[in-house]
Amino acid sequence: MNIFRLTGDLSHLAAIIILLLKIWKTRSCAGISGKSQILFALVFTTRYLDLFSSFISLYNTVMKVIYIMCAYATVYLIYGKFKATYDGNHDTFRVEFLLIPVVLLAVLINHAFAPMEILWTFSIYLESVAILPQLFMISKTGEAETITTHYLFFLGLYRTLYLFNWIWRFYFEGFFDLIAVVAGLVQTILYCDFFYLYITKVLKGKKLSLPA
């Protein structure tokens, strides 16, 4: 464990909690892409199946359980409890255009052609593009609630910190996983545009609005 990975995990946890609280407190999921949240629930489900087969550390197990529970709770709030506030007209990204290439890529490019390994690879590739429906929805509505931008900031920050974690681990532990690094780079690059808007607008107290 290193400082980049720990702050990365805490940033990820913060994002997940911020979103859950935003929906729960405002009793509304306006501006939130349910499709992205379903994809994240799928990412955690396919990546954390090893919860039942291998124990790595208490931290690892606890965080995985929290992530999975929050992900499904968020999906439930969006499509269940507060579905009246779900903005389906703007959440129209075609997720099959993500899922099909990700499945093909996971089957073709992986570390080992074994079920758990392919599921893990699928999860890594899917996570790198899972935020696209959410970013697409914001570009369609032309704006985002400030709390939603904080959610996206911490979510983007987490994988950015993981990139430094991988540099650290390569240098100090000789650990290197090309699949995770490439997917993590793609994931972080997708946030660059948002990071720019977040830093130049939201941090200056303005509302995040895109030129519609």
């Binding site: 995990d9 690892n60 992530y67």
Partner: peptide
């Protein structure tokens, strides 16, 4: 293909 290393990251 590098062997699938111990997956200790979240």
């Amino acid at each position: 293909e590098t062997a699938s290393q111990e997956k200790d990251e979240l």
